[in-house]
């Protein structure tokens, strides 16, 4: 993996390649001491680079084409996944997937936005940009979960809801609004996880829940840094600055009380190790589900409304 290397990842990847070369050349010789030194250096270098990422670099990691997507997490975390298709109204949106699956010993409804990994699959998935039927399918599946009293897990990873002619005709705004409204009162626990990009209303459309978690190298905001830059500065040149200004990283959002918890990613980011990334997410999800199942008599519903009603900063 890691065939695509971001600019700031290069020093790490180069050092790793060097280690591989040395290993190859040193057949029979004992170089374990040297190797250990170099491997330690890799870890140090990585820690140094990854603890000083700029918000724009985080955005790039969140969009890394080799990052695990919803289905990767579903396959690596759960068993017996049965994908359920269609909104029963118009069609089946490939940009949102969902279905029942077993997470350890419980059945969950797991729903996520799905990107493609190459041009062909990206066209099939519409680059992870849902149409209204995607949001309506998600809602239909959540209602199924409510009916059978299974918790809902949603995975957010979208560059935004699709701004197409058909999407507008079929009520993109209404589809998202309806989901916010219905998710607010869904009578089963909802755990939301941002696993990549969380762009605006398109992300929030499956993003109302009891707990909102975020992987380490993701972004979540009201607008993408590029669009923000083009509106406020009339050019895409200021995307780095916009990324800083928007406070869109997991650390910023935790501080602002928008998310509840940050989930660690494998060293160097989730794209470096899909299996480990899924393992870390699974562990967190089980903890969270255990916690929330202790809350009695649908008290979590009151808490959910309370949680979102309290968001905002103002003075009187």
């Amino acid at each position: 993996m890691a065939n695509i290397t971001l600019e700031f990842e290069k020093p790490i990847v180069e050092l790793e390649q060097k280690i591989d070369e040395i290993k190859e050349m040193s057949s029979g010789m004992d170089i374990s001491n040297e190797l250990a030194k170099l491997e330690k250096k890799v870890i140090e270098l990585r820690t140094q680079i990854f603890s000083n990422l700029t918000p724009w670099e985080v955005v790039q990691l969140a969009r890394h084409p080799e990052r695990p997507f919803s289905l990767d997490y579903i396959f690596n975390m759960t068993t017996d996944f049965i994908e359920l298709h269609g909104d029963r109204l118009f069609g089946d949106d490939k940009a949102i997937v969902g279905g029942f699956a077993r997470l350890e010993n419980r059945t969950v409804m797991i729903i996520g936005q799905q990107k493609g990994r190459d041009t062909k699959s990206n066209l099939y998935r519409n680059f992870g940009m849902p149409n209204p039927e995607g949001y309506r399918k998600a809602l239909r599946l959540m209602k199924l979960a409510e009916k059978f009293e299974k918790p809902v897990i949603t995975l957010i990873d979208t560059p935004g809801a699709y701004p197409g002619i058909g999407a507008e005709e079929r009520g993109q705004a209404e589809a998202i609004a309806k989901n916010l409204f219905e998710m607010a009162k869904l009578k089963v626990p909802i755990i939301v996880v941002i696993i990549g990009e969380g762009a605006s209303g398109g992300a929030l459309g499956i993003g109302v829940g009891d707990r909102v978690l975020m992987l380490e190298y993701c972004w979540y905001s009201v607008i993408s840094p590029e669009s923000c830059s083009s509106i406020l500065w009339r050019s895409w040149e200021h995307k780095e600055k916009a990324a800083e200004q928007l406070k869109l990283t997991a650390n910023d959002l935790l501080e602002l009380g928008i998310i509840d918890r940050i989930i660690p990613e494998p060293p160097g980011g989730a794209h470096r190790d899909h299996v480990l990334a899924a393992k870390l997410l699974k562990k967190t999800l089980i903890e969270e589900l255990d916690q929330i199942s202790k809350i009695k008599n649908e008290k979590f519903l009151e808490n959910r409304i309370e949680k979102f009603s309290a968001m905002g900063f103002f003075k009187e």
């Binding site: 609004a177 916010l180 509106i231 968001m311 905002g312």
Partner: peptide, 16 residues
């Protein structure tokens, strides 16, 4: 835009 994700959360807040 100037309130970033907090503005986004107002969609959730008003809808809930």
């Amino acid at each position: 835009m100037m309130e970033g994700a907090i503005s986004l959360m107002q969609l959730a807040k008003t809808s809930t």
